Simulated scan of single mutants.
Amino acid sequence: MAMQCAILDDYQGVALTCADWSGLAPSIEPVVFSDTISGDALVDRLQPFEVIVAMRERTPFDAALLARLPNLRLLVTTGMRNASIDMEAAKAQGVTVCGTASLGHPTPELTWGLLLALARRIPQEDAALRAGGWQTTLGMDLKGKTLGLIGFGRVAQAMARYGIAFEMEVLAFSRSLTDEAAAAKGVRRANGLPALLAEADVVSLHVPLNDSTRHMINAAALATMKPAAYLLNTSRAGVVDTDALAAALNSGQIAGAGVDVHDPEPLNGTSPLLTAPNTVLTPHLGYVSQDNYAGFYTEAVANIRGWLDGAPLRVLA
């Protein structure tokens, strides 16, 4: 009898077409779920499964949930990092956790799209044109402006390259960044976060969420920014105090924001950003691309095949 494999949070209904699952038959029968649930309903759904494929951090697997899934033997996460999985609890329970590769370009491409949409007022002009209007706004030129990057990992470094291509000055802040390392990438190191916020015309966030970054963009930080500046967040929602950001947008304290990450996800309609002006909001699309999904699911299939053969791949726990 085949083991059933739960494929979670497949909102677009593409998991079974992005990769060839036939090679797992007859050992594995994939079962796809297109919604995100939690609590007892999630436990009831997942209890029968020995294998689960999770999409990024959409469904948290903390110690409490894992303890209620006694049949679980293999948990595959897309990407090689997943802060919503308690790796120690999984290991203690005898659950193998495997990851997949993740492409570096989809998130910065989406982030740059948010910037262009904000700077050239694309959503407003699209809506006005459809309503019979014509040229209702003035866009902001990017050439000659300063792009401020908070964090300087691979996504931020891609953003730096885009900024340089658009003839922007690029300023970066990271606790580990040196003047020499910044110069090697063609950017200037900011002398602290307040200095970057005060100078940048566009502030883009590229840091993980932890105790030191939670709400690093709060009311005080937003007050430091230029009134004509834009904020971009494609990292994690908790890096920004959402209520403070909405207040800054409503008061005109900053010019606008492009936001791809939210709390909760999916949004339940209560976020104050939904009614704040001068925003471009996307539903956590940074990693959602054809090539990235093909890689996610192809390597998930390979992980399951390796586990079945007694040689699991890309083991995280």
Rank of each mutant, 00 (worst) to 15 (best):
I7M: 08
L8Y: 01
Y11M: 06
Q12Y: 13
G13E: 08
V14M: 04
W21I: 02
S22K: 05
G23K: 07
A25S: 09
A25N: 04
P26W: 00
F33K: 06
S34G: 12
I37E: 05
S38R: 13
D40R: 07
R45F: 08
Q47Y: 03
P48G: 08
F49M: 09
V51A: 15
T59N: 09
P60I: 12
R68Y: 14
L72C: 11
G79L: 07
R81S: 02
S84P: 03
M87R: 14
M87G: 00
A92W: 01
Q93L: 13
T96L: 12
V97D: 02
C98Q: 10
G99N: 06
T100K: 09
L103P: 01
H105C: 03
P106S: 03
P106N: 12
L110G: 01
A119G: 03
R120K: 14
R120E: 13
Q124L: 10
Q124M: 02
D126T: 14
A131L: 03
G132W: 05
T136F: 09
L138F: 08
I150T: 11
I150R: 06
F152S: 12
F152P: 08
R154N: 12
V155M: 15
A156D: 05
A158E: 14
A158V: 14
A160K: 10
G163P: 03
A165L: 12
E169M: 10
V170P: 00
R175F: 11
R175Q: 13
L177V: 07
T178Y: 11
D179Q: 14
A183Q: 15
A183P: 05
G186M: 06
G186K: 11
G186S: 04
G192M: 08
A195K: 03
L197D: 01
A200V: 01
D201S: 02
V203P: 12
H206K: 08
V207P: 02
V207I: 12
N210P: 01
D211L: 08
M216D: 07
M216W: 04
T224G: 00
T224A: 06
K226V: 07
A229R: 05
A229E: 09
L232T: 06
S235Q: 05
A237H: 06
A244V: 07
L245H: 02
L245A: 10
A247N: 10
N250D: 14
T270P: 08
L273G: 02
Y287S: 12
Y287T: 09
S289M: 00
S289N: 00
Q290D: 11
F296D: 00
T298W: 05
I304R: 02
I304Q: 03
R305V: 05
G306M: 03
L308T: 00
D309H: 01
G310I: 00
P312V: 12
L313A: 06
L316H: 06
A317S: 12
